[in-house]
Computed example of a mutant assay.
Amino acid sequence: MTCPTCSVWWSCPASPPTSGPASGRNGCRTSRWSWCATAADAAALLREQADAGLVRLPVDPEACHAIPLYTETTVVVVHREHLLAAADEVTVAELADETVVWPLDDVLGWPGTPAAPAPVAEYRPETTAEAVELVAASVGVLLVPQSLARAHHRRDLTYRVVTDAPTASIGLAWDRDRHTDLVEEMIGIVRGRTANSTRGRGPAPADKPAAAKAPVKAAGRATPGRDGGRRGAAAPHPGQEAARPLTTAQPRPTPVSR
């Protein structure tokens, strides 16, 4: 999740926050979302309050560690009745005849350079939100990452992917001097460690020894006794005649006729 004009940060407080915490592995609470208008504000928040944050790369390597997470698609925001709205996607060359609105909080750093695809409007709004208002008034078009276009969605506006435009990347960052257990937990999550991973986790509890199994006597197996009977045979029920021992029948002699 990304704020319309800045980086979004989270912290994992020891005490439950007052609103909307979300619990993760080991009870890690991702909450207390904050928005930073500048990279300096973000660095200060990481240094003093937050354990980690989602930031737009690159970051100052002297102040923060960072793990790249994903790259956002760049889109052009236009009025719904604009000619570009009829296309599924556009290229940089198709923006040559357009006027680009370039806000002061731009995160691409591209529209105002010599490589920009179109001329930039003389007036530069302070925020992306104000730039969206100018696009709605048909002053020009706006180039932003797709997440910002979605955050500023309006019924009278739409956006199209610019297939060959520069992009913006998002990463997980934390202060170099605040590498805590919670930060290690977050690093494990974004790197795909499973619940069975042991790095950065406490020692796993020893398994309880399995209880010894008592020997089980085989039922129904009879052994010969001293009295010719069978040991292990079931006792007769009351009123039931006891089973007679089996005997081998002797063949009768055949009479001989004279």
Rank of each mutant, 00 (worst) to 15 (best):
S138Q: 14
Q250A: 10
A50I: 03
C12Y: 03
V216I: 12
L45H: 13
P13L: 04
D97R: 11
A212H: 09
P68A: 08
T5N: 14
V90N: 02
S34C: 13
S15K: 06
S19A: 15
A118Q: 03
A43K: 01
P17Q: 07
E94H: 00
A222V: 12
A211G: 05
T198L: 11
R201D: 02
A234P: 12
S7T: 12
V59F: 01
V120F: 00
L143F: 04
A234V: 12
G228N: 07
R230M: 07
V132G: 09
G27Q: 12
R80V: 15
A234I: 11
C64Y: 03
A210T: 15
M1L: 06
P145V: 08
N26G: 13
S147T: 13
A173C: 03
T18C: 08
K213Q: 08
P17C: 10
G27V: 08
P17A: 13
R29Y: 02
G200W: 11
T30M: 15
P16E: 05
T2Y: 00
N196L: 12
L84Y: 05
V92L: 15
G228F: 10
A22I: 15
H65R: 05
V144T: 14
A173T: 02
T2N: 07
T254I: 04
L46V: 03
P117C: 03
G188K: 02
A22K: 13
R160E: 02
K208W: 09
L83C: 07
P245R: 11
T99V: 10
Y123R: 15
V107G: 10
R201L: 09
R221W: 09
E130M: 11
R231L: 09
D105H: 06
V100L: 14
T113Q: 14
R191H: 13
A121R: 06
A137E: 06
A204E: 05
P236T: 03
G171N: 02
P103L: 01
A50C: 09
V162G: 00
R244T: 14
S147R: 08
T127G: 05
R244F: 06
K217I: 14
A137S: 08
V101W: 00
P17K: 07
T248I: 14
L69G: 03
A211L: 09
L104Y: 07
G53Q: 00
L108I: 13
C36Q: 11
P17G: 11
A116N: 02
A206K: 11
A218Q: 08
G140Y: 02
A219G: 13
A219E: 15
G202D: 13
L69K: 00
T248Y: 14
W102T: 05
G200K: 13
D156S: 06
G109S: 04
T198Q: 08
L45I: 10
A136K: 06
L57K: 04
A151E: 07
P245M: 12
P209Q: 04
P125E: 00
D207N: 14
I189R: 02
A195E: 13
T71Q: 14
E89P: 06
A39M: 08
P245A: 13
A210R: 15
T127E: 02
